[in-house]
Computed example of a mutant assay.
Amino acid sequence: MENMNTFQQFFYYFQTNGAYVFSQFTRHFLISIYGVLFAALVGIPIGIFISKHFKLANWIIRIANIIQTIPSLAMISILMLGLGLGVNVVILTVFLYSLLPIIKNTYTGMRQVDRNALDVGKGMGMTAWQRLYMIELPLSVSVIMAGIRNALVVAIGITAIGAFVGAGGLGDIIIRGTNATDGTSIILAGALPTALMAIITDWLLGIVERRLDPTNR
């Protein structure tokens, strides 16, 4: 009976606060997207660079690994000291945590490109830039996409913590629920859409990843 009452309160909360939940859902998703997008703009070129200068690869990947070892709440707290409260802190946190999977997968994808294909490109008179855009990136794009996929799923979880620094998002609803006297239904109203967002995002990007895989064509 108690579980039934909780779900009734859950649906009632959605009926009365549906617009608010949707606005926080959108805000949560956009914060995650922006952080991962900026990480991709930085991480993919770094991954390409270290694939050509692989002596630097261990150092750069090690630095990205060190960032990953810092707990997300601690990272947000550290960045908050310099940037203050708000969305920018969370976007930067997502950016930093997204670097490792994107850099590592870009490096791995580029290193796995068939050397024979590159030799053929050289034989055809292609420049290094032409080989990059016409051979290496098309053959490694599915691996790079897998890194972006992992980064975005992790980012959705990190963004939920951003409510502690006033960034909003679905984490704000979860915090409201924890502060309420009987807030289980409110917690569910924030937690379930967060989980649903991560599952759907992972599924959709998985489809894109498989479509981009040259072995599936």
Rank of each mutant, 00 (worst) to 15 (best):
A39Q: 04
L96G: 11
I44Y: 09
L100V: 14
L81C: 04
L83G: 05
V89P: 12
Q68K: 15
V36N: 01
L99K: 09
I60R: 01
V89L: 12
P71F: 07
A40T: 12
S72N: 09
I31T: 14
V113L: 15
G86M: 02
T26M: 10
A39I: 12
V113D: 03
A57K: 10
S98I: 03
L30A: 11
P71T: 08
M75P: 04
T108Y: 05
I66R: 08
H53K: 11
G86F: 03
I76H: 02
K52S: 07
V87D: 07
R111A: 00
L85W: 10
K104A: 01
I31G: 15
P71I: 14
I66D: 08
T26F: 03
V42R: 04
H28E: 08
F95M: 04
L30E: 06
R111E: 08
P101R: 08
A64L: 02
M110F: 09
L81E: 04
Q68P: 06
I67W: 14
F95H: 12
I48P: 10
S72A: 06
K55S: 03
Y34N: 04
I76L: 12
I76G: 08
S77P: 14
L85G: 12
I31N: 13
L73N: 00
I70W: 12
F49K: 07
I76F: 08
T108P: 06
G43H: 01
F54G: 02
Y34Q: 13
